[in-house]
Design a protein around this nucleic acid. Structure first.
Length: 873
RNA sequence: GCCCCCUUGGCGAAAUUGGUAUACGCAGCGGACUUAAAAUCCGUAGGUCGAAAGACCGUGCCGGUUCAAGUCCGGCAGGGGGCACCA
């Protein structure tokens, strides 16, 4: 993509040329909007004005804006401009999610400081966003790596800590011994660190955790209140929280060992208790650990299990492995029966109690294990007439069959599934076998990261006082600038001048916590800070309660779980600590699709950029050749734009060539906003053609001084108001592609009317003004220029949204389709308020209806007023 | 494995939520303008048959409900997404 501008002629003002020149027009209006501070919201809305908060997920300053950002921010901007025109006090801020690993990687690669790199990127990207003409309140801009922001975050940390919402515990982490750092699961590839390639170890580290699990029930229940969220996201959150009901029960050991008299297990399938054949413990289970102390083989087994990875693929392949402890427990419901106790690699310590009873007949994992270690498979308890003996596939009873619980007498048969579980839970409780318990899949959120470029955790470790919070007065704990990345690991660990500090409690020698916070923390409350980003406390509670919850939040589906769940948790935690008083941060959520592009390949490996390829043909006959040599090129899949596949389009180049409005119009047309949009050069050119065509039309209308040769045009005016009515409903529903189609139809009609010359200049101008207002949220610069050309006063961006005249929305007469036996055979035009009977009568008199009836009896005539007539013969 | 979503022309899609299927755009084709091309404009466009009028078929496939189904119900196929040794 070259970035040569289409024309070098200097800023011609509207009336001088037929050609619309975005390059000059767009910056001119941007300057005027900025001068008038049109998009800056007051701290609190003016009296009588309703607040409306539009927010797009803030970007990570990776270097340059990509086309996905353009789509995201264009969508938000349409809503912001529309709501402003509707009379709302709109808050539409922008900031930067600026901490994170890429800055450290860049620092290592380029021998620079992560901060320098980050702020340079921010400057570049701010400039790019400003070229788009977004109606953003730049006065509220901040980056999460600003001391002012993360210092406030440290205050939140301390208040959460004081409120018992943060605690410290040991946790298993992926440790890269070469880079001397912790890796996220996604950074471990085939058991090796993604950067260093070193074998990753499982290590125990003491880390800080948010007690998000305290809110599990609430976070789950309140999903129901999120009416303006996509069902898909709500479902994903619910599954992530993962509530299940089950039975907590003890299996008594035949002989006590290491102080254990029983093993407590958790099961969601108490109905399979009778099929229990062994007990399995997690390797980290306290009893496993205790036993391993005097059993080297078990100790080795435990270590070995820990070494194996936890990635999906590895788990898939991993064999079920176990270690027989030699211990036995009594079956609680069967006299004299005992079960062996194993330590098994497939049992997780952090779900339930870290111990299970296994029922091989009805659980595939248990069955695999039982076959391997030759344990009994007891499959008689579903007592189904047609049940075949379990071989190598566990039998999971279908939903409708009845099952029997244990050896209880008749009368306790129940259906399987949740009903069976609930019934057997009751039964088990009555028998005193255990207690019903609710479990959540959701785990506490570990926030410690062993990295430099993040918000320092405001804690001091003192040998005599333990962990001591940094006193409020000493906040912020500022990241030191004089650091180096010449050695692996967190540079804070070797920065003694920063690290060593007197204990705030006893004054003795102490050290700072060198871990920083997960960057998800930064993005969990920024939306609240935007309400008043200069306040000296983390939030201005009053301003935040005015603006929050965010009325419309827009971002990628990839944040459907973590970011949104963490933010929901933070809102609650901030409420507990008095920093906010809403529970749900986002009233409306919209997840937009990606911008994707076809890929092209020469040979097996060489990706080609779209600019190097020439396309021809259609359907199966589509063909691509390399422009330079004419050789055939493989057309690959349509994929997310990525550097590696070279299918990237640079927004700057598009704006240089076509202007911001064209780019905005294109990403808003065609594809529904929640679906992926395929970027095509032809599509962009089409959008640009419309810009030029529209401008030409407005010029023609604005310069015509006629009025003599034409009259009012009722059809055109009616269409304009119908379109306005539709657009007015489509924009708030974010159905931009549908709104765009509406506008096209109206513009086509307006153009036809202008050419025909039978409509008065005044009528044309009135309709043109309406169209300009309708396109203004999407193409604000063009709208502004047209607004001026049409002689309208003030700024289009500051104008009130027009209202459709209800009288013009309906015609006096309507045309109804007429069906014979459900197939359309013609239509009929009748007065709007003609009675059902009269419509039926008129329809039956139609020639084609008569012909269809012939001599057959009319069995039924269905008349749906205003909709359809169906004659059944 | 469990949970969820999607499937409409050559392509992106629309269909007022059960009431005229394919609006609008892209690509195509025919034409006008031009020495020519680009740009622009006009026309055409689901499939089959037909000179035409028109007829029949048609929203992934099979079946059902209904006067009427892209839309609702049951089954199947294909594509996509989420979760996952969660007991």
């Amino acid at each position: 993509m070259t970035s040569a501008p289409e024309t070098n002629s200097p800023a011609p003002l509207a009336t001088q040329t037929n050609r619309y020149d975005p390059a000059s027009v767009e910056t001119r209006w941007q300057d005027i909007w900025a001068e008038q501070k049109l998009f800056e919201a007051p701290t609190e809305p003016a009296p009588g004005k309703e607040p409306y908060y539009v927010l797009e997920m803030f970007p990570y300053p990776s270097g340059r804006i990509h086309i996905g950002h353009v789509r995201n921010y264009a969508m938000g901007d349409v809503i912001a401009r529309y709501k402003r025109a509707k009379g709302f006090e709109v808050l539409h801020p922008m900031g930067w999610d600026a901490f994170g690993m890429p800055a450290e990687n860049a620092a290592m690669a380029n021998n620079t400081h992560p901060g320098t790199w980050t702020y340079e990127n921010i400057a570049t990207m701010r400039g790019q966003l400003q070229r788009m003409g977004l109606s953003l309140d730049w006065s509220r801009e901040f980056a999460t790596c600003d001391v002012d922001y993360y210092g406030k975050q440290q205050k939140l940390f301390l208040d959460f800590l004081a409120a018992g919402l943060i605690y410290r515990k040991n946790a298993k982490v992926n440790w890269d011994p070469v880079d001397m750092t912790v890796l996220a699961n996604e950074q471990v590839i085939d058991g090796k660190g993604w950067r260093s390639g070193a074998e990753v170890e499982q290590r125990d580290l003491t880390q800080w955790f948010f007690k998000i699990s305290d809110f599990a029930e609430e976070l789950l229940d309140d999903i129901d209140t999120l009416e303006n969220w996509p069902d898909k996201v709500k479902l994903m959150q619910a599954n992530w929280i993962g509530k299940s009901r089950g039975l907590l029960m003890g299996f008594d050991l035949t002989e006590p060992v290491h102080g254990f008299e029983a093993i407590e297990i958790y099961t969601t399938r108490p109905d399979t208790l009778a099929g229990a054949s062994f007990i399995a413990l997690a390797p980290e289970h306290p009893l496993s650990v205790a036993l391993a102390k005097d059993n080297t083989q078990l100790a080795e087994f435990n270590v070995d299990v820990r070494r194996s990875g936890t990635s999906e693929e590895e788990l898939e392949k991993a064999e079920k492995r176990g270690f027989d402890t030699g211990l036995r427990v009594k079956h609680p419901a069967k006299d004299n029966a005992t079960l062996p106790v194993y330590v098994a690699n497939f049992v997780l310590m952090d779900y339930g109690t870290g111990a299970i009873f296994a029922c091989p007949a009805h659980d595939q994992r248990d069955l695999d294990f039982a076959r391997k270690y030759d344990l009994p498979v007891i499959d008689t308890f579903f007592a189904l007439d047609n049940a075949e003996p379990v071989k190598n596939e566990a039998f999971v009873p279908p939903k409708t069959q009845t099952v029997r619980f244990l050896d209880q007498p008749a009368g306790v048969d129940v259906a399987t599934g949740q009903e069976a579980v609930d019934a057997t839970l009751d039964w088990a409780e009555k028998l005193g076998l255990g207690t019903a318990q609710t479990q959540f899949r959701l785990r506490d959120w570990g926030l410690s990261r062993q990295r430099y470029w993040g918000c320092p955790i405001p804690i001091i470790h003192c040998e005599s006082c333990g962990t001591v919070p940094v006193p409020d007065a000493d906040l912020p704990v500022v990241l030191p600038d004089d650091i180096t990345f010449d050695k692996p690991g967190n540079p804070l660990n070797r920065h003694d001048a920063w690290r060593k500090i007197a204990c705030p409690k006893c004054g003795g020698e102490a050290v700072r916590e060198t871990d920083t916070m997960d960057t998800f923390v930064d993005s969990s409350w920024y939306f609240a800070r935007f309400a008043d980003p200069t306040v000296t406390t983390p939030t201005n509670v009053s301003a935040a309660s005015t603006w929050l919850p965010v009325d419309q939040y827009i971002g990628g589906i990839e944040h459907a779980i973590l970011h949104l769940l963490y933010s929901r948790f933070f809102a609650r935690a901030m409420k507990v600590t008095g920093h906010l008083d809403v529970k749900e941060p986002f009233r409306g959520l919209f997840t937009q699709g990606m911008v994707v592009h076809e890929t092209y390949k020469r040979g097996e490996r060489e990706w080609l950029s779209p600019q190097e390829v020439e396309l021809s043909g259609e359907g199966d006959a589509r063909k691509a050749v390399l422009k330079s040599t004419g050789e055939d090129v493989t057309i690959g899949g349509i994929e997310k734009m990525s550097k590696s596949k070279r299918n990237i389009v640079d927004p700057d180049a598009i704006i240089d060539r076509y202007g911001a409005d064209t780019a905005r119009w294109f990403v808003l047309s065609d594809s529904p906003p929640d679906r992926d949009v395929v970027w095509t050069e032809a599509g962009v050119e089409g959008a640009h053609r419309f810009v030029q065509r529209f401008w030409k039309l407005i010029l023609a209308i604005s310069t015509s001084n006629g009025g003599g040769q034409g009259g009012a045009d009722n059809d055109l005016t009616r269409l304009a108001h119908r379109t306005l009515d539709n657009v007015d409903r489509m924009i708030p529903a974010l159905r931009y592609n549908a709104a765009v189609a509406q506008v096209y139809t109206l513009v086509n009609a307006l153009e036809a009317a202008e050419r025909k010359g039978t409509t008065s200049a005044e009528a044309l101008k009135t309709v043109a003004t309406l169209v300009v207002q309708m396109i203004a949220p999407m193409m604000p610069h063009l709208a502004e220029e047209c607004w001026a050309a049409l002689g309208e006063k003030g700024l289009c961006a500051a104008t009130t949204w027009p209202t459709a005249d209800p009288a013009l929305l309906e015609d006096d007469s309507i045309t109804l389709p007429v069906q014979i036996n459900g197939k359309k055979r013609g239509d009929i035009t009748v007065a709007k308020d003609l009675s059902k009977e009269d419509v039926e009568k008129a329809a039956l008199e139609l020639d084609f209806v008569q012909a269809a009836i012939a001599d057959k009896p009319v069995r039924r005539v269905v008349v749906v007023p205003g909709r359809i007539v169906n004659v059944v013969v």
